[in-house]
Each structure stands twice: as structure tokens, then as C-alpha cells.
């Protein structure tokens, strides 16, 4: 049996010479969701990272734990990675909207029943995070991109655009905003609560 300094590990009773495990099979993990957070009231929601989860509700819980427990946060959205439409990437300082192929403009009289809301996110600079710029109404993701170009195309620069059907975003509710209030009992995980200089100075004086 494997013996360790760590009593918890000894309790696992692990074999001394284990057999080589076989490789994990493909998809031996939960799908990913992309997370957007709001750093303060009225700020744009911005991309913060992915989480793995079996479904959107759980993704939201994981996202809250992973991305909001340390820094200020006033709201959070999650969307399945597979639900996000991504444009090609342009150069810094340019607008990727100029690279998009122009689709036939939808007739203004198009059947309104086929229209859905889409959320549009812009990446302003390579290496930074996508931020929410607004919503458009369209009949498909491609049409939504055209609508986004009309609505937000004058913004500069836009390196990359993400289009997400609004229904695919699970959003925190305004009524639940107190869930973002950080408990004052957890100061021990802030760098600012560790002040050792007094102790060092006292030690130097005594020494």
C-alpha cells in the first residue's frame, strides 16, 4: 500500500504499483458554457471564461462560484458554447464588420413571427474580453449579424463579434441581486487583510 505523510491519503489505501489507466474516452466530461459577468451596476456584461456543467442551471452555479466569489460582481449570464456564433477575427484597430459578406437585406415587411432577439458582443482588442453591445431582432444568426452591422457597425475597433440567440442566455434576475453581496466574514481571502509589516518591525526592534 502507498504510504504518505498525509493521513487522508493513507486512508485511500492506494496500491503501491497501480496498473496504468486507460486513456479517457472522448466527451468524458460535461459540455462547456461561456460566462459573462457585470463588474458593477450599469456596466456592460463582459466575457470572463468557461465552465463545464451538465445543464444551464448548474453552469450558472459553477460560474457564480468560479467567477464571482473573489471580485465585485453585480450580474451574470451563461450560454452554451455551442450556441455562440463567431465571426472571423480582424486586425486590431479595424472593424471586422467590413470583412463580412453582405447578405440580401431582409425585407422590412418580413413576417414578424419569425423574428427573435439576439445579443451582440464585440471584442475591441485581441487578447481582451468580448463585451455586450446590445440586442437586435432578426430571423437567423446571419441576419442578426447584418442587423448588428447596421446598429453597431460604426463602432471602432471591432476585432470579432459573437452572436447569441437571447433565449440561449441564462441571466441572473434583478430581484436576486442580493446574491452578489459578499459576506464580510470572508475577508481572509483578500490580500488586503494580511498586514505583516507591524509584526516584522516589532521583530526587528526586539532583535
Amino acid at each position: 500500500m502507498l504510504s504518505s505523510f498525509d493521513p487522508r491519503i493513507n486512508r485511500l489505501e492506494l496500491p503501491d504499483a497501480p496498473s496504468i489507466p486507460t486513456d479517457k474516452v472522448a466527451l468524458d466530461q460535461f459540455p462547456t458554457y461561456e460566462v459573462f459577468h457585470q463588474r458593477k451596476e450599469n456596466a456592460a456584461y463582459a466575457y470572463v471564461g468557461p465552465v463545464h456543467a451538465p445543464e444551464a442551471d448548474v453552469a450558472f452555479l459553477f460560474a457564480k462560484e468560479q467567477f464571482s466569489r473573489r471580485f465585485p460582481c453585480t450580474g451574470m449570464w451563461v450560454a452554451p458554447t455551442s450556441a455562440i456564433q463567431v465571426t472571423p477575427y480582424g486586425n486590431d484597430q479595424e472593424s471586422v464588420y467590413n470583412l463580412l459578406p453582405l447578405l440580401p437585406v431582409e425585407s422590412a415587411t418580413a413576417d414578424a413571427t419569425g423574428q427573435q432577439a439576439y445579443d451582440i458582443f464585440h471584442l475591441k482588442k485581441r487578447g481582451k474580453a468580448h463585451a455586450h453591445v446590445g440586442q437586435v431582432s432578426a430571423s437567423s444568426p446571419e441576419a442578426a449579424l447584418q442587423a448588428a452591422k447596421a446598429a453597431f457597425g460604426d463602432q471602432r475597433p471591432v476585432v470579432n463579434v459573437w452572436v447569441i440567440r437571447s433565449a440561449d442566455l441564462l441571466r441572473s434576475d434583478d430581484e436576486d441581486r442580493d446574491m452578489w453581496t459578499t459576506t464580510p466574514d470572508k475577508k481572509y481571502r483578500e490580500a488586503i487583510s494580511y498586514k505583516v509589516q507591524d509584526r516584522i518591525d516589532r521583530f526587528k526592534q526586539e532583535g
Binding site: L27, Q29, P31, T81, H130
Partner: peptide, 20 residues
Amino acid sequence: GAWVRRAMQQPQARYVRPLA
């Protein structure tokens, strides 16, 4: 942890690479 992943696995799942 394997049993948890097995229980939650969705047969129709497809691999999606993270975006950014």
C-alpha cells in the same frame, strides 16, 4: 468521479472547443 460523469453523459453530446 467516473460514475458521476457516466451518469450525466448525454449520448447526443458533441465536442465543442472553447472559444476564447
